[in-house]
Amino acid sequence: MSAALPPRLPARRTVGALALGLVLGLVLLDLARTGGLDPLALPPPVALGSGLAPSGAHCTQG
């Protein structure tokens, strides 16, 4: 009796596009719900030299 063939998996290009697409979909859905940042209250482009303390939210903070 011959063994069943293993299932054929989607190509890397399909899986990669799907992963990136799903993440971007989440970003866009979230953006539609929250809106963008206030253009008059944007964070400084570069933290160093801004005179501001970092706003936090890092993996190491509980």
């Binding site: 990669g16 993440v23 939210a57 890092h58």
Partner: peptide, 28 residues
């Protein structure tokens, strides 16, 4: 406060999320 703010704002305001998205795009 910092986490509540991240939750209320767009994902693109979170620095870690933005580099994560860039990282996935770079690998793609």
């Amino acid at each position: 406060p910092a986490n509540a703010r991240r939750l209320a704002e767009t994902i693109l305001a979170d620095v870690t999320s933005v580099t994560n998205i860039g990282l996935i795009a770079g690998a793609f």
